Amino acid sequence: MTTTILFAAPQDSWDAYRAPLTEALDATGIDYRLSRDIPAEEVEYIVYAPSSGLTDFTGFPKLKAVLSLWAGVEKIVGNDRLTVPLTRMVDDEGLTQGMVEYVTGHALRHHLGMDAHIVNPDHRWEGKAPPLARERPVTVLGLGMLGRACARQLAQIGFPVTGWSRTPREIEGIRCLSGTEGLAEALSGAQIVVLLLPSTPQTENTLGAEQFALLAPGAAIINPGRGPLIDDEALLAALDSGQVGQATLDVFRVEPLPQDHPFWAHPRVTVTPHIAAETRADSASRVIAENVRRGVTGAPLLHLVDRGAGY
């Protein structure tokens, strides 16, 4: 039988995915039909992006699974009109590598104090060599696939890395902590903090005034995870006091970041427009195709979303 796959994403995504997804599905050997235009009563799988505008899944009587192209599922996980299995994109090698490069680059930027030399209009000949990486404690909040990959890369460079997650984890070469007390311990004395937690009610404002006070004075914050992980007002206060020396922010509560938001003008904030990592069509297509193959053959789907946990 032919498996019907609806591609529910904007036209530009279809343009990017059509060829690599077709190639990946062909490689599975299954008989399939892939299109942006399939009658709802025939659809069995939906390749999905929240930006597609699709929110009501009750009109798809044969639907077996929704396969999200995004790592974040906060815009769909609470949808009571979606009752079939939902998967998310967490094993895309391109997305992972992009995140590792972003985090490593900005961690080294802050570690080496590069900003003072890149922007030096007065031609100042001053400064001192930075400490070695082994003298700069780094904390990674969130030890999912992206967090683990970033923590390992930073540790390989020589940073002493502490990882924190809501539930216990074990990663060779990484000091791993969990729970409320573990968060305080993980943040105490940290000089660079990387946020890679999912956005859930439990993770909102993971970093607030109390947490910023635990950091080493002048610490750097790197947030390529989710905007709500940080209390914006508390961060601005910590920046103004010098408790936080720099913040590189790629994600925000409202995107695009409003033009009048204080982050734009703050001298210690770097705003990047949600570019830390993105799903790459070629590698993501292989993940999607494998899940379709699994669904067709009765094997367990990969990267299932835990509706209770929110990710």
Rank of each mutant, 00 (worst) to 15 (best):
R293W: 15
P258L: 10
M99W: 11
G147Y: 05
L229R: 04
Q259P: 00
A299W: 10
A289V: 10
T55Y: 10
A24W: 05
I118F: 14
E23N: 11
R294A: 08
H123T: 07
D15W: 08
A16Q: 14
Y17S: 00
D15F: 05
E181A: 13
G147R: 05
A247Q: 02
R294D: 01
A8M: 06
P201E: 07
Y48P: 02
T83F: 00
A149I: 11
S68K: 05
P20H: 07
R293N: 02
N120M: 08
Y48Q: 01
H110T: 06
P273K: 08
G105K: 06
F7M: 09
G225M: 13
G173N: 07
S178M: 12
M114Y: 12
T270N: 00
M114S: 07
E278D: 10
H123Q: 13
P267D: 04
P273C: 07
Q243D: 02
T180D: 14
G218K: 10
R148K: 15
N223H: 08
D260S: 13
H106I: 14
P130T: 10
D306H: 09
L34V: 06
M99R: 05
E23Y: 01
T297S: 11
E23V: 13
G29F: 11
S285A: 15
A276N: 04
A209R: 15
W164P: 03
G113K: 06
H106E: 12
P300S: 02
F159R: 03
L6W: 07
P10F: 08
K64M: 04
L54N: 02
Q259C: 00
L183D: 07
P137E: 06
F60C: 01
R134I: 12
L187D: 03
A237M: 08
V254W: 01
S285G: 00
R286A: 06
G29T: 10
Q191R: 15
A234F: 10
E74Q: 08
L177N: 03
H261Q: 04
L82N: 01
R253W: 12
A281Y: 05
V100Y: 02
S283M: 06
C176M: 12
E126N: 12
R18W: 14
A219F: 05
I38Q: 04
A284C: 08
A247K: 01
V161Y: 08
I118H: 08
T104M: 12
T2K: 15
